[in-house]
């Protein structure tokens, strides 16, 4: 799938040129120290094409996504500004879209956001004025029609490449392809999926995506997360909603001596990427090495994804 490049996003250019894209992730710190971001950036630089900056993920207060993205750009990297609907109404959302674009951000990921129950401020009032699908159509309208949700004209439109998430492993499975179709109808241009551990189920979902021709309308990046240990694998299997870790992977991690578990986790991630590269409709991978940024390069290298193209 090609199509006209609509923004200055490197990620968009790579995807539209038909090259296999790689995105990574960088979680902002729980403090005002910019050096934390700069340090993570040094570990991640040139290991992927663009890097998600999470937006108060799991509802834990962190440095803002926009501010962290700006620090990342100062390090010569391309951020994907994540934005959740939990903490902002449509006024704040549109204002932050304008601000982010003005500061040079080129990519945005539209998310509903984890419920605040999971975070460090479960007492907070949530917003959810609009949902992730409505956020997609909002930012597309701002960019392509130059209109605010309220209908007024925008002077100086935000040129953002618009992404969203998809979780093929959540229930009910049967609407997971139709739900992607809804996001496509709203105007999403790239998708990063939930971490893929159950490749069989993921292939089944991708078949549905391809059968409906959705892979020709949206770039799909498969989500990959390396296990640091058996403990982490077990935690993700049991405690993270919407996560599907098959027993055979748990057994494989459990059967590995403790000192080699990290290595085994990386091996599994690399194998997953290799299988994703062969899968019809997959345009790239999204490597989420949670608080393990130093391993992104190693995974990308072993999966044959380096060096990254320059566009």
């Amino acid at each position: 799938m090609n199509g006209e490049v609509k923004t200055e996003s490197k990620l968009e250019k790579i995807l539209r040129s038909g090259q296999f894209a790689v995105t990574g992730e960088c979680g902002p710190p729980r403090g005002a120290d910019a050096e934390v971001i700069r340090h993570k950036c040094k570990l991640l630089k040139d290991k992927a094409d663009a890097f998600n900056i999470t937006d108060n993920q799991t509802s834990v207060v962190r440095m803002s996504s926009i501010a962290s993205a700006v620090i990342m750009m100062q390090e010569g990297m391309e951020p994907v500004m994540q934005m959740v609907c939990r903490d902002r109404n449509r006024i704040a959302i549109q204002s932050d879209i304008l601000g982010g674009a003005a500061l040079g951000i080129k990519n945005m990921l539209c998310l509903s956001g984890d419920h605040q129950k999971f975070g460090d401020h479960p007492q907070a009032k949530n917003v959810f004025d609009i949902d992730s699908i409505q956020l997609i159509s909002t930012v597309r309208r701002m960019r392509d029609e130059g209109k605010f949700l309220g209908g007024d004209d925008i002077k100086g439109v935000p040129k953002l490449f618009v992404g969203a998430a998809a979780n093929p492993f959540a229930d009910p499975f049967e609407i997971r392809v139709p739900r992607l179709a809804k996001k496509v109808a709203a105007g999403v241009e790239f998708i990063q999926t939930q971490c893929i551990f159950n490749l069989k189920k993921f292939s089944e979902w991708m078949k549905g995506v391809v059968d409906r021709g959705l892979h020709e309308k949206v770039f799909i990046l498969g989500g990959v997360t390396p296990f640091k240990s058996f403990g982490m694998a077990r935690y993700m299997a049991k405690n993270v909603p919407g996560m599907d870790v098959p027993d055979e992977l748990l057994e494989r991690m459990k059967g590995t001596p403790k000192e080699s578990q990290a290595e085994e986790g990386i091996k599994i991630a690399v194998e997953t990427i290799q299988q994703l590269k062969e899968m019809k409709g997959i345009a790239g991978v999204h490597i989420m090495a949670i608080e393990w940024e130093e391993k992104v390069g190693e995974i990308a290298e072993k999966a044959g994804l380096l060096p990254r193209p320059s566009v």
Partner: peptide
């Protein structure tokens, strides 16, 4: 819906239940 989503369900729907509480229906 715990998030009042007009275009749900979110990625936290598990076996018919809401991510915030296994006692709460999605």
């Amino acid at each position: 819906c715990s998030k009042s989503l007009l275009n749900g369900p979110c990625g936290g729907s598990t076996k018919g239940k809401c991510e915030i509480d296994p006692e709460v229906d999605c």
